[in-house]
Design a protein around this nucleic acid. Structure first.
Lengths: 207, 207, 207, 207
DNA sequence: GATGAATGAGCGTTCATTCAT
DNA sequence: AATGAATGAACGCTCATTCAT
């Protein structure tokens, strides 16, 4: 359930049409007219619910972060073991990006100048996602299974790695000879091996 | 060294102005008219040197891949040890991206639709960059210092990780409390630890 | 009677301004911007009523064929005698062309490339105009007053002759020493004499 | 032999390339750049031989009228009998138009505003073509085989009819179910029957 | 709660032409 | 005899947005 309810209200239909168009044609060619055409209303109508195009997109970004956090939080709650939990979080992140390319594009692939008007307090929500990884890393470090200097930096670096994988996959920039699953798997297992204490036995991926 | 040197020719000034605008405003808002305004010529003049906007951007992409490959090749030649070499290649890649955000954006952050008209033979040049990493991985594996199932997939995954780091840094999406150098360092060291054989002693980064 | 009457609606004013410009400057130099300037609106406004330039012109072409067919049908209905009727149709055609040079230009003087996107069903309407002549020729042949091998070909040939006369008059390519009325009259009477049975007495033109 | 010789001089090549482009793409999309590209010289070079685009086209128009007149004069000289001669002239006119669509387009199908700058004395040359028909009509009238009030008007009317046939054929506006040869034949025979004295036996077309 | 009418800015691109060399 | 460099004007069209209703 998203923050604005999933009723058939025009506001909701605008958001959904926007998501559809983001998947179908990408952010670059997203236009108010197209959104309006998609749902059969006038372009003006959109302005009744969103101050402007940016506000509309920002709303979607918020939704996206809400969804992502929910998924990650749920995943984190499911695994007591920090190693298992960390891997699960990472896999979930990648899965989210691949399953929701439209959210992913505006959440993480928009250019900085596009984000300038994005209210900074919203970023805090984005950061909460990272906290889950940080916690797992800290827990694991305390248990001696992770070797990590700075959990926050490590979590960010791992997130960057996952982001790179998702971004290249979505942009279809990965060599077609490479199986996407193997690609993701290699990324995650390499990261895991990179943070695990040398004597910690590397358990098989719970794929 | 680019193909035409840095003489004051209009063609060169167009390319430079384009690079400047790419850094300053991003690809999305790049326009022929802005380029012309930037260098104080008429928009028409650009068409004397480039068939159209795509051709202009493609020229820059070529330049970028030329530069990157040159840097990586030089770096690869400098280090006999595959471990040292791999780390050097990775560091160089990140450095290139951070030093040349404009090239990086059009080389790696453009959406596929934008690239459709990019001549496929040019991609070969792009892939050669990856080959250098693959070779290092293969060599290291033969020497028993790397544990890698599929070097090509591993090289791609590592590239994706580095790309993610560069992309987030350029987009200023990394938490400001995190020192970029530590962020990069952690990324690279984690990757390295992830591919190194367990008994191989991890030497300190030669940074 | 056109489909939307002659109210002062912007749509109508666009169509009228276009017609004016077609007369004043010809199709070749017709531009959306000029139309907008002519009626004092922004070029964008035109796109509220017509999908693009072609659609605008096609609308006028439709109007033109509507008008012409109406005139010819009415004329045909007025005359029982096929000889009188045929001459009346011919005169009416020429009169239409001279009275509506703007319609005539886009209806009959546009190059085929321009028409490619013109929906083919619309052409049927154009052909119905010819059918009226064909019917008159067939009737007259049955009555023995016309000597015609193939009425459809004959009707086309006569139409071509009339078209030539109209086209040259509109283009002011006819020697100025020649009275346009005499020119038209000669064309039509010659055609008539050319199709009449030898023994049919040629009545004076009912001009 | 045209007035400017048919050597391989650049001037000649420009004229030929222009003719080629007129056939291939039509007057509307004729451009100096395309002409230059076609013959592999710079657009500027054209201006060494022709003051501007209009002058270039006017030169071709002159050539066209020269060719047409030559053909018609030769044809006229071949036939003593005015009836035969007139038909021959008409057929030759149509043949010229169909054989030289590029000349025909600029000679007879250009819009009036395009011709404004065409030097009026050149029109006299165009009119000489008509004189040949007028003479045939006058001769035939003196011999009692033609019934013509005003030969000049009649010649113009017949020319208009032929022009209409050629124009519609070139523009492919004639119903595809109609055989072009039959179409032309009908036009000419109808005209002929229209001017022949009632008792003059109509000889079969020398098709 | 929603629309219709309209705009100003901007886009990539093409054109005929000029001028210095 | 010919070119290279450059321009100003124009083109069709799309966009985000506003305003009156």
């Amino acid at each position: 359930m998203t923050e604005s309810g999933s009723d058939g209200t025009l506001r909701r239909r605008i958001l959904d049409a926007t998501r559809y168009l983001l998947v179908a044609e990408g952010y670059a060619s997203l236009s108010m007219r197209k959104i309006a055409r998609e749902i059969g209303c006038s372009p003006t109508a959109i302005y009744l619910y969103f101050q402007n195009k940016d506000a509309l997109v920002h709303t979607l970004i918020d939704e996206g972060f809400g969804l992502l956090y929910e998924e990650l939080r749920e995943e984190a709650a499911r695994h007591a073991d920090p190693v298992v939990r960390l891997e699960a979080l990472w896999r979930r992140y990648v899965a989210f990006g691949r399953r929701n390319p439209e959210y992913y594009e505006i959440m993480f692939m928009l250019h900085p100048e596009r984000m300038e008007r994005y209210p900074p307090e919203k970023y805090r929500r984005a950061r909460r996602c990272l906290e889950l990884s940080i916690q797992a890393l800290e827990e694991g470090r305390r248990q001696g299974v992770f070797v990590v200097e700075n959990p926050r930096v490590m979590a960010s670096a791992a997130w960057a790695a996952l982001h790179g994988a998702v971004a290249l996959l979505l942009a279809r920039r990965v060599d077609i000879r490479i199986d996407p699953e193997a690609f993701i798997d290699t990324t995650i297992r390499t990261l895991l091996r990179g943070v695990l204490a040398p004597d910690a036995s590397l358990q098989p991926a719970s794929k």
